[in-house]
């Protein structure tokens, strides 16, 4: 007697009806693209690129600029909660991000990267946005930990922003609660890889399988 193999019962994707997810998708549809370059610089490089053979210049400039950018990403020291302890451990000598060219800097005006390490409350979000706005372009943001990614364990509380990507654009999300230094280091390496793949001096490259 032959037995039919069991048919897996796949439940309907009820999470698609989840209200939070719809809100999140709405928000990301309206997000402006690209704060990684200046309009003037883009117009100049577009001009060079349109010349015959100009792509040689722009791709060489791309390679050089991306190498320079990814080798000197200075994170602003912006610790919000317990994730900041792991961030400090990453900055310290055992994990030593300075070998990647990252210098933890205490001023947003000299920094390229903001590591949002911890819970962002509704009261803190305007200050976070203000610090982010003080950083010069091109700038990047790493969301570190469950709280900054999605609100984490406080998601259904009354005072927590449900993910820092509702306030600033985020390039790399590091999961964990809190993420260990190895995890953050992996996130920073992914960020460097993402920076190295920017095209035409600032425009976003085709999807990078390692990051996207």
């Amino acid at each position: 007697m032959a037995l039919d193999p069991p048919v897996p019962i796949v439940p309907a994707p009820i999470w698609r009806n989840f209200k939070d997810l719809q809100e999140w998708e709405e928000l990301h549809k309206t997000r402006p693209e690209g704060d990684k370059h200046s309009a003037l610089f883009e117009s100049i490089t577009e001009g060079i690129h349109s010349f015959p053979g100009g792509f040689v210049v722009t791709t060489a400039a791309d390679a050089f600029l991306n190498w320079a950018r990814k080798s000197s990403v200075w994170p602003v020291t912006f610790g919000l909660a317990c994730c900041a302890i792991e961030m400090m451990a990453t900055f310290a000598s055992r994990f030593d991000v300075e070998r990647l060219g990252m210098v933890p800097w205490a001023s947003p005006r000299h920094s390229d990267l903001m590591i949002v390490s911890g819970t962002v409350t509704i009261k803190m979000a305007p200050m976070l946005l203000r610090i982010y706005d003080q950083m010069p372009d091109p700038k990047w943001a790493v969301s570190m930990g469950s709280c900054a990614n999605s609100g984490g364990p406080f998601r259904h509380g009354y005072h927590v922003v449900k993910g820092v990507d509702r306030v600033i654009p985020v390039d790399v999300y590091v999961p964990g609660c809190p993420p260990p230094p190895e995890s953050l280091l992996n996130g920073l390496l992914l960020l460097q890889d993402q920076i190295a793949h920017f095209n035409k001096t600032g425009k976003k490259a085709p999807p990078n399988p390692k990051v996207d």
Binding site: L27, I122, A125, H156, G157, Y158, V161, K162, R166
Partner: peptide, 9 residues
């Protein structure tokens, strides 16, 4: 708690 508080909630 579900009261909208755009854009944060």
């Amino acid at each position: 708690v579900d009261t909208p508080h755009p854009p944060y909630r």
